[in-house]
Design a protein around this nucleic acid. Structure first.
Lengths: 201, 201, 201, 201
DNA sequence: GAATAAACGAGACGGTACGTCTCGTCTTATG
DNA sequence: CATAAGACGAGACGTACCGTCTCGTTTATTC
């Protein structure tokens, strides 16, 4: 979303280079504000005031405040959650879903939910989240599924995308549409149900 | 949400009665505006202008514009989708999920998604949707599950709530977080996967 | 400039009537700010803050801050300076020019000069000042001249507009383009020179 | 206003010498911009873009954009209008006022008016214009008056400054405060009225 | 049939955030 | 070291929408 590297022709552009400090100050302030009062309470003026970066500069690098929010959110996330690969698809799924559940229940869970909410009205936010968050997670899910199939643990006749939906969908459903608890027990129960199925053999 | 019957002391209150026509005009205008431009484009002034009902009257009967939106949305929905009861849990689930899928893919799907989005920042909207939409649907899902268990088709050792999450969660996940297709085939695939499970026996 | 009387069809318009208090509060605050710091220091936010009237309301009734300034200036001026008519054109001119001189040298002189300055770049301000200030003054000047001609005191072969320019022009010239003093002696000297002419008979 | 000769210690300063070309490019671009869109449309960024001189350089040599404007305006003016000295004060005044009138009515007349306007809020601009424009013109006027007095054409008992105000004031008054025409006939009428006076002998 | 009570349309209003603009300063790399 | 390029902080601008308010009008029940 941000022109992280607008280096056009040569390796170094003429003129004063973009201040990396400004960028990080903006992202830090934004992340703080979102944690404190949510997406709505995060106004551009507040970001400017807290970060010490002027509004003009903010609007130079981000098209609007939601773009800043997404950027701040993604930067703040420890994206290095990694893909579990224990040799058991069941265990891998359990680890992955537990991780997501913990994240949702943690301090950034509400922020994430609000960004997903904003995405329903803002295609740019939607695309950004899809590309930088959902894509990564789904890729992890697909990897677990594929390895499980290869090892003979999982059914090969199920569409990979459907499989991923089945495991991850219920967690997001709880986050966004119910006020049901999001804890480890729930995570495990979802994974087990998804693996074994609802029907009796 | 609306004080449909604020009849306080007696059966008939003194003074001019509330205009039922105003109420329906507001809801109709709101539904139209949401379909045309989404939740964001629906401003209170526009509702007032299109419905011919003054802003003061709108704010007299609804606490804010999102309450109007939820009300309009629920009124416009054909709530009479009913609970399928064919004697087969698989068929019942398939009918239910197909219904939801069609609704999501239809003209009011985006409106619904945006309301869910708004709910992430607005507890009142969230409560309203949960009580008047999710509750109904989940009740249907629970019924199907319970009957399936009673008939010996479904596993009795799975939590009912988890079961409902497993069937309905993936659909909402697709609606809100991916741009994956929402069609009949997807609906059936989800139901089948949920019933049979991902794991090989 | 302001729609002072937007009374359309009937004697009373529908809806909440415009607050006369808001209007006067805005004009008062604006006049104060102009006196305190000049036209430049007078910002819309300051007017709003000091008057207690919101920016939106200000922009509803005036197209921009300069329109407010002109309105405030004209309202604050005691327009009832009246037209002198002593029976002597010389005396009348002396009274008129003294009045203008005093005004220019007074607390609102700088404000007036800055408005004239603004008018050079803003046709709307220019028109407003011309119509509501210059027109009145010139009319007074023309009256004095005409009566003087009728009484046989002044030359009938001089264009009235030129005559008015000759008496009033030098005063404004001093105000706007020199830092020469603006006092009673100057006023009288200008009038005397204009009446007698520079040339020897 | 500009440090035209910042020759410090020796005849040749160390470092890269100031580019005379930059200076003229800035002034030319500024004059063009003022003619095209007036003083308001002339922004520092536009001057930099059109002249090829960086903003930093501009601000190094001029304190602000109005100083550039004044400088550009004075440079662009054909200051070589000279002082008429025909042997007749009436003719000399007529020539001088015609010259001023033509200038005001010409392409730079609006620019001049806007600078005078800016001067009402900016003492530096005011001083610059007074010293470099008004002073010269008034000196010409004083010369004509003094020679006329010496030749016995003009009254010796009138203050020289008042005399100059009487001749030049009406022209500027028309430029700044009315939309009356500025043509040769007007110029001549003003001079004649100023010389003969309004009063009958 | 008047008096009372409440709903209603019209629209002005205060508040708040938005995103844009220009000014004048600064920080690089280049000549 | 002067410059071109251009990022930056400051802060005013004018707009949009929200939800409240103040009118006068309309429509019912109550006395």
């Amino acid at each position: 979303m941000t022109d992280t590297a607008p280096t056009g022709p040569g390796p170094t552009r003429a003129g004063r280079p973009r201040s990396a400090q400004s960028r990080s100050a903006v992202l830090r302030a934004t992340a703080e504000l979102m944690r404190e009062g949510g997406l709505r309470a995060m106004t551009t003026d507040l970001i400017a005031a807290r970060s010490g970066v002027s509004k003009a500069t903010i609007y130079k690098w981000w098209p609007n405040k939601y773009a800043v929010a997404v950027d701040a959110f993604l930067s703040a996330m420890d994206t290095a959650s990694g893909a579990p690969d224990t040799g058991s698809a069941a265990t891998d799924f359990r680890i992955a879903v537990r991780g997501i559940t913990e994240f949702y229940a943690g301090p950034d869970g509400r922020t994430f939910a609000q960004l997903i909410g904003e995405a329903q009205s803002d295609p740019a936010v939607a695309a950004e989240l899809r590309e930088h968050l959902m894509a990564t997670r789904r890729e992890v899910g697909r990897g677990i599924f594929d390895r499980g199939v290869a090892r003979g643990e999982l059914r090969p006749d199920i569409d990979r995308e459907i499989a991923v939906d089945l495991v991850f969908g219920p967690v997001m459903y709880r986050l966004l549409a119910t006020n049901a608890p999001l804890d480890v027990a729930t995570a495990d129960a979802i994974v087990e149900a998804a693996l074994r199925g609802l029907a009796l053999p």
